[in-house]
């Protein structure tokens, strides 16, 4: 998902407090920033929300790549609005993380020097206009799978951010599907583009949910805290079940020879992505890791004089105001 492989922190605290905390969560109460919470809960959430925020921010880049080449004014406006939404999602999420006692600048620096990650999916290149369709349809689609349940997450600010974000994400997904539809119904070159985009984005989209976490202790703890609502495999299955009929409707072929409806389970059987590729991407060896991080670093470095200048001006203005009083 946007937050992949989040390690949850072990917690060594007063068992009574922990039990009371767990009871609140089990009763469906929301935990608010000022409430007592275990250190592990706090740290895990900072990591998860931070990674989610970073994913929204880095996620601007693959789609931003096509804004200047959008084929019509309307498509350009839709894409711009979408990328702007993603920046807004980043903003809400950084604000949610800040309620846990970390600043946006601290989180940003951890992204820029590689201490924090963002979703593996944004390390894949966008090569044709059909990729704008595939990203909206598949990537936002996979994001929604995870984020809809997170609307019920136990941490209040995160839950509220998810509620706002989910509305926009489902809009993005529909727009992406609409781009794919136009391509799939278009000229033979457009159909080829659409199929090619699906071929390239299918497995990376499945990887978004992270490797199977059936036996992971970390995810058990996160599930108990309602920071994680479903297992990775459950979400991946749900995504496949939803997406395959959509691909069929478009007349596109999912690039998986083993894909088959299973009467007994009531789900599709499908091939796992190549997990060694996933771990390579996480290690920094995805097709675009270098470019993505370099772009974020240069935005930050080149923007330093701007941030400093605006801050200096605000201070001067405040000082003048005091002097005038």
């Amino acid at each position: 998902m946007y937050a992949q492989m989040i390690k949850s922190e072990a917690t060594q605290e007063d068992p009574e407090k922990l039990a009371a905390f767990q009871a609140r969560i089990d009763a469906g109460e929301k935990i608010e920033p000022k409430d007592w919470m275990p250190q592990g809960y706090r740290k895990t959430l900072i990591r998860q929300i931070g990674q989610h925020a970073h994913s929204e921010i880095v996620g601007q880049l693959p789609e931003g790549n096509w804004i200047t080449r959008a084929p019509t004014l309307e498509r350009k406006a839709i894409l711009l609005a979408k990328v702007q939404d993603e920046a807004g999602h980043g903003l809400y999420l950084y604000c949610a993380a800040e309620t846990l006692g970390v600043t946006r600048d601290e989180l940003t620096e951890m992204l820029l020097d590689g201490r924090m990650k963002y979703s593996s999916i944004f390390n894949y290149p966008t090569l044709t206009w059909a990729d704008m369709g595939a990203v909206g349809w598949l990537v936002d689609g996979a994001a929604i799978m995870n984020q809809v349940p997170l609307q019920r997450t136990s941490f209040g600010p995160y839950s509220r951010a998810m509620i706002r974000i989910c509305k926009e994400e489902s809009f993005h997904q529909r727009q992406g599907y609409d781009v794919m539809m136009k391509m799939a119904q278009g000229t033979s070159a457009q159909k080829k583009m659409a199929q090619d985009a699906l071929n390239r984005f299918w497995y990376p989209s499945l990887m978004m949910f992270g490797p199977s976490d059936k036996e992971s202790v970390h995810s058990e703890q996160s599930m108990a805290w309602k920071i994680k609502m479903n297992t990775n495999d459950e979400l991946r299955q749900k995504f496949v079940d939803q997406t395959v009929p959509q691909a069929e409707y478009l007349g596109l072929t999912v690039p998986d020879e083993n894909l088959k409806w299973n009467e007994d389970t009531g789900h599709y059987d499908f091939s796992q992505p190549d997990w060694s590729e996933f771990f390579d991407v996480l290690k920094g060896n995805g097709p675009c890791n270098q470019e993505r991080l370099a772009a974020r670093n240069s935005a930050w470095d080149d923007g330093k004089w701007v941030r400093d200048g605006l801050l200096a001006h605000a201070e001067k203005k405040a000082a003048r105001k005091v002097a005038a009083e």
Partner: peptide
């Protein structure tokens, strides 16, 4: 052309 490259997030949003 600035999209995703502005000095602060608020500027990215405003430019877009």
């Amino acid at each position: 052309e600035w999209c995703g490259h502005a000095p602060v997030l608020e500027e990215d949003i405003a430019l877009a």
